[in-house]
Design a protein around this nucleic acid. Structure first.
Length: 477
RNA sequence: GGCGCCGUGGCCAAGUGGUAAGGCAGAGGACUGCAAAUCCUUUAUCCCCGGUUCGAAUCCGGGCGGCGCCUCCA
């Protein structure tokens, strides 16, 4: 089995080969922390997580860096409005992002660099480009990257740089760029920048880093000249990542990124999510509406990352039920009576086939839809094999449990669902007590009383399931 | 205008040359004191037209429809 990934630069799916053995260096463009991340952002971050989890699952040694942009026009503007420094203004949003990430089961990554922590390295990087003739200081005090100095410009987006309409975007005369296509590496500080604590000394005077610069410098500092994967939302292809390539390769003279992966933007209830439409929604708002984190996670990974995905509340309901099926299955398996004398079941073959399909799906450019199909096929087939037999061998049961856990190490659905359904000990005791009371009533044939107890539990979100081995219960969202 | 994507059953969504995974919802049945869970059965020829091919949802052309990027938005 070989992992194949789609590379934006080649526009084709090809074998994934890390630069060095089975070590994988990944850099992902995280959020700009000027506001709460919305559900669309999390489609992207959840994909990052799938990549992270699957590579580790497949045996790679992964070093994963996710940046948080804390210096840019938006954070500075936000800081200015609130009278805070950029550091103070962005802190709560950074924390909220990490909290929402945990809620959705996104694994921690190895490093979360912020631009403010790398100013010195950025200044050095810009100096390097100026010294080598790839950048120049303009009269407006900014330092620009000279696109004319980088022959490969446009290779990511697949455009010929000479085709870029020179002057097409120069509607203001405020720039002193030599070429309209050039982009800022370092911007001269404004009064607003100074007030927000977003200005630093440099050989070119007080200023702050340009947005594109941040990722190049931080990835270089943390992961070296060449990355195995660079991930981001599709909007970043141009100009952000194109510019990163230009400045990075101009500076290091090494290939910057071996594989570019970009996630398609999410639609919300059939429309593009945008601030102007006012239709973006955050994870915490969905939780307030009563939706379950596992449902959100499921819907966001239910479509391939390069396909359209229309996020809807109707879909969330369907996802909740799909996740519930997995929980029910897990509960059934773990509650099985084990017996040495249990008859042979076709379980090993079913499970092996499921795992093979699962891996093959994920290998095909992280095809999560197909992978979910493999998982649910296993659920149905094992359920069918189990029907009619109340006992199973320990080996068969363990095989299923391990396969389920294994696939969930990548998908993270059960993991998140369990976390949201954990209950306190005293609640457990109370439920157990009620169930026993109901059993007594049933034994006496007093079904009215028994049903009344069951209704009482249902109201609390506890659903009962009577089986041959007694009554199981579960918490439903 | 430039570049690109998509259109699969009621809804969501895989499959990208050999006669359509999976999830949700619905219907019928089995099981159950009744439920729940589970199982079984059941619902598609893949937007339209033309072409290539022994054979296409899958390739090519045209049409209709939806969408994205080209603005420091993931």
């Amino acid at each position: 089995m070989t992992l194949k990934v789609y590379n934006t630069q080649t526009r084709a799916v090809g074998p994934f080969v890390p630069l060095e053995g089975n070590k994988v260096r990944i850099y992902a463009c995280g959020p700009t922390i000027y506001d709460h991340a919305h559900i669309g952002n999390f489609r992207t971050f959840l994909f990052f997580d799938l990549v992270h989890r699957y590579l580790e699952w497949a045996g790679y040694e992964v070093q994963f860096v996710l940046n948080l942009t804390d210096v840019d026009d938006k954070t500075i503007e936000g800081a200015a409005k609130t009278g805070l420094s950029v550091a103070e203004f962005t802190r709560p949003f950074g924390e909220a992002f990490l909290e929402d990430s945990r809620t959705l089961g996104i694994m921690p990554v190895d490093s979360y660099p912020r631009a403010t922590g790398f100013i010195e390295a950025m200044v050095e990087f810009v100096a390097r480009l100026v010294d080598s003739g790839h950048a120049y200081k303009a009269e407006d005090g900014a330092v620009y990257f000279s696109i004319a100095s980088f022959a490969d410009y446009g290779k990511l987006k697949g455009i010929d740089s000479s085709d870029l309409k020179v002057g097409a975007r120069v509607t203001h005369d405020e720039y002193d760029k030599e070429d309209a296509r050039d982009f800022a590496l370092w911007k001269a500080a404004t009064d607003q920048d100074e007030r927000a604590g977003a200005a630093w000394d440099s050989p070119w005077g007080r200023g702050r880093p340009g947005w594109h610069l941040e990722c190049s410098v931080m990835s270089l500092a943390e992961l070296g000249d060449t990355l195995d994967m660079h991930l981001g939302g599709e909007d970043l292809v141009f100009p952000h990542h194109e510019n990163e390539i230009a400045q990075s390769e101009a500076a290091t003279e090494q290939p910057f990124v071996r594989n570019w992966l970009h996630v398609k933007h999410l639609q919300l209830e059939g429309r593009k999510m945008s601030k102007s439409l006012g239709n973006y929604i955050t994870v915490r708002e969905l939780l307030d509406e009563g939706y379950d984190p596992a449902s959100i996670r499921h819907q966001l990974i239910s479509a391939h990352y390069r396909s359209d995905l229309n996020f809807t509340r109707v879909g969330l309901d369907a996802s909740r039920n799909a996740v519930q099926r997995l929980l029910d299955f897990e509960s059934r398996i773990s509650g099985l009576q084990v017996s040495e004398g249990a008859g042979a079941l076709p379980i090993p073959g079913l499970v092996e086939e499921a795992l093979r399909s699962f891996e093959s799906a994920m290998d095909q450019d992280f095809n999560t839809s197909d992978a979910l199909g493999a998982l649910f096929t296993m659920v149905t087939r094992v359920n069918a094999a189990l029907d009619g037999c109340s006992e199973v061998s320990a080996a068969d049961r363990d095989t299923v449990v391990e396969a389920l856990e294994s696939m969930d190490r990548v998908l993270g659905l059960l993991e998140v669902a369990r976390a949201a359904r954990s209950v306190d000990e005293d609640v457990v005791d109370w439920v157990e007590e009620r169930i026993q009371a109901r059993q007594r009533a049933r034994a006496e044939g007093d079904f009215e009383a028994a049903d009344s107890i069951r209704d009482e539990l249902t109201e609390k979100g506890i659903v009962l399931e009577d089986g041959p081995e007694g009554t199981r219960w579960k918490v439903v969202s």
